[in-house]
Design a protein around this nucleic acid. Structure first.
Lengths: 224, 224
DNA sequence: TCAAAAGTGTTAATAGTACACCCATGA
DNA sequence: TCATGGGTGTACTATTAACACTTTTGA
């Protein structure tokens, strides 16, 4: 079954834009390359696709390797295929963004891969077309946020409304009115009050909330 | 410069979802395959990427070949990379959607490539994962419509407001109130009255409008 | 006692939706 | 003269935005 023998073949990599939320800021996990090409430049975390896996599976494998995490929320950003995007040789990259809980990230891997968290608004210039990838990913991620409750992937299991609000402020780069925000959250039945009060963020303490996916899905079904 | 010699390489194709607007309906240009694999099945129009071109350039080349048109509005839908998506051998496809003016399409190419226009809601089952591609492309295209004036790519240079409305109705699959629609259009200064009256669509005749990209861009700049 | 974050409602402005009739013309 | 598509305005509803003070508590 060799219908296509006359066509050229290409190396395929996947690059991952790993979003985290920490310190009131959106952060990206990037690494300083200790290999060629682009040695000593900052870049996204990536790797090559194997012939035995789908591209999605490759991205999952690489994310697992670089963060220690499985079941990561992940979306494809797109394929990047300019001829000279990789100075080594022709490589086509399929880019993904991922949303992870910074607290779950295995810190030991930072040293192993030369990786650091950097606030997205303070990124250094990145290797090759990686800055373009980040830009596109950020746009897509904002769009997602506007239509689906994906923010929970960036927060701990239980979170305060102030944390949730800060997350949305970081994602959109705006400030949001506290009362309007809480009014809206209050109508989202899938954001549920756990009854637990957390004292780590303030003296008075704040109620912890949690995302209830079951309720969310039920609610979605009603819309059809 | 062979840093990557140990990694596998892949065939890359691009598949094009070609949207047209005709007869009050959104239509797709698809072809009946007269080659293997998937002979006699319906599929999108596609082709392989050459080593001397970017993926975008490959898509443009293929669109030119299959429609006779250049300067086509085109957006990447994404990469499709399941292992067995092509029954022949492993092929990764980067999918694009394109918006074209049906009137500009070179009809002779229909016969050459076994292509036909089919209303998007009446598509037959398609080869491989092409139906999934169409679904994703349709979603993305709707999103685009909601945020940017891209509909003009599907209409003749000059068009009536009824045509424009029918286009939006076809894209969203809803019916729109005529007065509300015209009120909104009236506020979009980049949709300009040409003063010309067209008598082909009615006895009374309807005013022809035109998209003014210069005004649109100016207006965009104000928003920054 | 005071600094620091948590929590709480009302009003005004804006955007969106519903709705029905007359007009101009060619056949 | 009449059938066909073209064109027009107003009232209601829903959504979004603006805005300031009290509460709790540990240091």
């Amino acid at each position: 079954m060799e219908y296509y023998s006359e066509y050229p073949k290409f190396l395929i990599s996947t690059d991952c834009i790993i979003f985290g939320f920490d310190n009131g800021k959106l952060q990206l996990l990037i690494r300083k390359r200790d290999f060629d090409p682009g040695r000593d430049l900052w870049s996204l975390l990536g790797g090559f696709v194997n012939s035995t896996e789908s591209i999605d599976a490759a991205a999952k494998r690489i994310l697992k390797k670089l963060t220690g995490l499985t079941h990561i929320y992940m979306q494809q950003v797109g394929a990047f295929g300019n001829i000279h995007r990789d100075p080594g040789q022709r490589v086509i990259s399929v880019c993904y963004y991922a949303l992870i809980k910074v607290g779950d990230y295995d810190e030991r891997l930072q040293h192993k891969y030369n990786a650091v968290w950097v606030p997205i608004d303070e990124l250094p210039p990145l290797f090759s077309d990686h800055s373009q990838m980040v830009e596109k990913a950020r746009d897509m991620m904002q769009q997602k946020f506007a239509h689906e409750p994906v923010g929970f992937n960036l927060l701990p299991e239980n979170f305060t409304l102030t944390q949730l609000q800060q997350l949305y402020e970081a994602v959109y780069g705006t400030i949001i009115d506290k009362r309007n925000f809480r009014k809206r959250v209050n109508e989202m039945k899938y954001i549920e009050n756990t009854g637990v009060i957390d004292k780590t963020t303030s003296k008075r303490g704040a109620v912890l909330y949690r995302f209830n996916n079951t309720i969310y899905k039920q609610q979605q079904n009603f819309k059809l």
